[in-house]
């Protein structure tokens, strides 16, 4: 069952354009949206949330139109942006008072227990909190009404490794329930390597591919050698190349390359970089 379907989404934003974006997120899985800054990842999430009005295309969440059933759908959505976006004079206690009047299933007990677990102060104003604290608060706010789908837009950017790890733990715990799903946009591919099941690669407003993480890491290989040896690799196998200290590094499709060539397993970051730089 798909919890999120995006079909032929197009949106013009100034000179930039999202073109025919299509992907599906299955229930119980985590999809990573990867791409460079400005590739269109955030714009896609903003279109899904109807913060940006799509020019054309169809978006359904829980099999319901994302605009027509906007408020109903949001009861089951948890959202985290790259910032907290809460007026800085508010405290966690204030936020609990507000959110229990907003969400039908707001769980104050869960919220306060998680604040304590992650050392987020209850009585401090948001403006006095560190960036790490703010982002932990953001994710706890997104989880305390027990949503079914999390939409995360670069939530770990600018965080130190310890806080990033804590956040990923929270997300892994969330995914223990098979009815839960996550769409996670990030340019920090390490984070996605840890939790994503599928990867959708966005480049210049278009989807380059959607593949499962495992097949992505298996289908591609990283070859390193001299420029001369590189000529022996069939050109249709080469996805991207870059010069290295020893000659050339190539990202290749394993199926087109003879087993005689020794290939390393690439990281998602390397797959992304080679795709962007081209063949």
């Amino acid at each position: 069952m798909n919890v999120l379907e995006v079909k032929n989404l197009s949106k013009k934003i100034g000179k930039f354009e999202l073109q025919n974006i299509s992907f599906e997120l299955q229930q119980g899985t985590v999809m990573g949206l990867i791409g460079q800054n400005g590739a269109g990842k955030s714009s896609i999430i903003r279109c899904i949330l109807n913060l940006l009005k799509k020019t054309s295309g169809e978006i359904t969440i829980f099999s319901k139109d994302h605009v027509q059933f906007e408020t109903e759908i949001r009861e089951d959505l948890g959202i985290v942006f790259d910032e907290l976006h809460i007026p800085e004079q508010l405290t966690a206690i204030d936020l609990d008072g507000i959110y229990k009047r907003v969400y039908g299933r707001w769980d104050s007990e869960f919220f306060f227990s998680q604040l304590e677990r992650f050392d987020v102060p209850k009585y401090d104003k948001v403006k006095t909190m560190s960036r790490g604290m703010k982002m932990k608060l953001a994710i706890l706010l997104a989880l305390s009404h027990h949503p079914k789908l999390l939409l995360l837009d670069e939530p770990t950017s600018g965080l130190d490794p310890v806080v990033r790890d804590e956040m990923l733990d929270v997300l892994l715990h969330f995914m223990e329930d098979e009815t839960h799903s996550i769409l996670f946009s990030s340019h920090i591919t390490n984070d996605l390597e840890k939790i994503a099941d599928t990867i959708t690669f966005i480049h210049k407003g278009e989807v380059l591919f959607t593949e499962t993480k495992d097949s992505l890491l298996y289908d591609y290989g990283l070859w390193k050698g001299s420029n001369e040896q590189a000529t022996e690799i069939p050109t249709h196998a080469i996805v991207g190349k870059r010069p290295s200290a020893f000659g050339t590094e190539l990202l290749v499709k394993r199926e087109y390359v003879s087993p005689a060539f020794s290939l390393e397993k690439p990281t998602i970051e390397e797959i992304m970089v080679f795709h962007v730089k081209g063949g």
């Binding site: 959505l77 907290l84 976006h85 007026p87 969400y103």
Partner: peptide
């Protein structure tokens, strides 16, 4: 200042 609307509009 906090860009609240972007976030407020994700609430039900």
């Amino acid at each position: 200042m906090s860009k609240w609307d972007k976030y407020g509009l994700t609430l039900p």
